[in-house]
Amino acid sequence: MYLLYLIITVLIVAGALIRKSMSRSTLEIIHPAREAKGSAKLLYLRSFKLDGKGWVTTNTDIFEGLNLFPPELDLAKAFIKFDFHLIAVGRPGEKIPEIGFDRKYFNNDVWQQEVIKLISESVLIIYRPDPSDAVLWEFEQVLNAKASDKLMIWANMGYNTDIKLNKVRYNIFKKKAFERLQEELPEFNKFKGWIALDAQGCWKSFSGLGMKQIPAYIKATAGRKI
């Protein structure tokens, strides 16, 4: 019986690794092609601390090194079916796990200007919040550029099933966003991981399945499906 469990586990791990490697190689081919074609940009803003990781700590630490189901890769896959050039900003010289997005590298002197430029050029912005000030700065730039109507906040706070920890981290971000930017974001909802402006222009939480009802998503993806 236990041997059966072991075989199932090995099969799942092998399957997940093959799936990950195939997704990665497909995306590596698609990104340059989309860039050359001049496809509409989709910008992904996040903390470098969570880069390439779905979760900083998980309940299955033994497989953490393998990073079997990187949600950022799945996120990229969910949007690559539309004619988007998926972009994320990286630090020069970094060597971090795949995140599924085409990483653009800028020096410390110019990265802020480049991020601002990318914010205005992108048709859709996915923002993964974090309590750090640097990530809040990016949120501020989106608001300053009056681009909040094309913003989707992906409230994946990086700690998997540890709801309390995720909630505390989100609440710190929410508090900072209110104090510094006077933006009243919705309460943490473990079932609704997406936050965006609704049709009335108020911040609202959406579930993963309800993502397709987000006005920013509808507007950006209309007529782009390949």
Partner: peptide, 11 residues
């Protein structure tokens, strides 16, 4: 951040 630190310690 104290709040975040406490959350990590609780976890």
């Amino acid at each position: 951040n104290t709040e975040e630190k406490n959350a990590f310690l609780r976890s």
